[in-house]
Design a binder for these strands. Structure first.
Lengths: 229, 229
DNA sequence: CGCCCTGTTGACCCCTTTCAACGGGTGTGG
DNA sequence: CCACACCCGTTGAAAGGGGTCAACAGGGCG
């Protein structure tokens, strides 16, 4: 049931995304791996031996119920660290949305490094706190917001991550089904809502996996439930 | 907009819930405070100066949208630590569900203690990881489950926390509105679903804030979406 | 003792899901 | 390089689960 990640190990040649003191220390214990699109990096319930950092590409973190219903907990993009939420086993499944390049850290050496260096330690606990913060905001989306508000919030999340401006095209690396599973909606509702936004002139979708927002302020207002929109 | 917690400071007299090495160390830097029912301990957005541990009573951790819609992220019960999810500001609001006794730790001394003692450090990061784990399971409830499954899951959460057996009465310290806001449902739906469970002989509610489950296995099956139930 | 808050139940409605069909882009194999 | 199949995205119509609005009951607190 739990597949070994199909990963190609190479020597590390690329610089980490945000250079900092702890990055140099962590670089020494990391191994660069490539994972092909749609391959599994680890499964929920697997022994959590490694944590990862994304150098390029995008990763989907999800949980699946026994009957197949799926909830996507997060998307890890360039620079993001994932797989820190161990407690022996991984709590989520990690799959490559695109072809992806990762740095892999063994749990034991990461812990050892954390014991030695306080800046690594605080960096790792920052990651955990940020993940918890994101999960709590995600809870608000699922528990309180309408479909229209959720889709607007989702697009806004990636506007911020991409630092995109009005009219600027940016990438949404996941498919519609992934968006639906992140938002607790069906793929049809996501499609319809995006079509509504297009018709209202709020967004354009030049190609699959691409989007631009024409009026970020309006979209943000919709996300917050401003009934004028 | 942000109220100072109305708390009565007393000298610490009670032992921490689960005695361990790190507890002794933490005891030295903690102050016991009492908070009355319905009082705010801290507000989302307040400067995060303190973390807390529950000695007795129950605390509600929630986020509120500008228009008043509320999502409860978690309930902190006896022995639970909360307010660790700082990043300058608190990410959630903490309110006393019942009269509550807390140990309060200042953020700075907690960090200092963490730097000195690895067992404190690992305990605090365990708390963060457990909170993240709980939030991810919560996401599945909100994103994937039906009302019936959510209410069953909710009761099961407290069956496990109380370690209750079939037929054994245990406490649900929160009101119906709190359950609804935790589950992303309305109070009416929670009531109706609980009434269904009562009618099916699955649960009994002797008094307000009390419940007993007659068939924990069946309730767990309902929670997981077993369509036979 | 009485008011008020919390919980409960009923009726109706609406938003989202479900089921279905179709088009177009994409990736693959010849 | 091209052809074809398949997957993904999109749109329509109908159904249903949970929300909304309303009324009422009971218990707790002042």
């Amino acid at each position: 049931m739990s597949y070994a990640p199909i990963a190609q190990v190479v020597t590390q040649t690329r610089r980490a995304w945000t250079p900092s003191v702890s990055d140099d220390a962590m670089k020494a214990i990391g191994t660069v791996v490539h994972v092909a699109r749609n391959e599994t990096i680890f499964n929920e319930g697997d022994l959590a031996d490694y944590s990862y950092k994304v150098l390029s590409g995008a990763v989907r973190l999800s949980k699946v119920m026994i009957d197949g219903r799926r909830q996507i907990a997060d998307f890890a993009l360039t620079g993001d660290i994932f797989g820190l939420d161990w407690s022996d086993d991984y709590a989520v499944t990690a799959e490559a949305l695109t072809e992806v390049t990762l740095v892999r850290y063994s749990r034991s050496s990461l812990q050892r490094l954390g014991d030695e260096r306080s800046e690594v330690r605080s960096k790792l606990s920052d990651v955990l706190r940020r993940d918890l913060w994101a999960a709590q905001n995600h809870l608000v989306m699922l528990g309180c917001q309408t479909a229209r508000e959720r889709v607007a919030s989702f697009v806004m999340l990636f506007v911020k991550r991409s630092n995109a401006k009005n009219g600027q095209v940016f990438e949404l690396p996941m498919g519609r089904q992934d968006i639906a599973d992140y938002l607790g909606l069906t793929i049809e509702t996501v499609c319809r809502t995006l079509s509504d936004f297009k018709q209202e002139g709020l967004v354009v979708t030049p190609k699959r996996h691409e989007i631009a927002v024409n009026n970020i302020g309006t979209l943000a207002a919709i996300a917050q439930g401003d009934s004028d929109n």
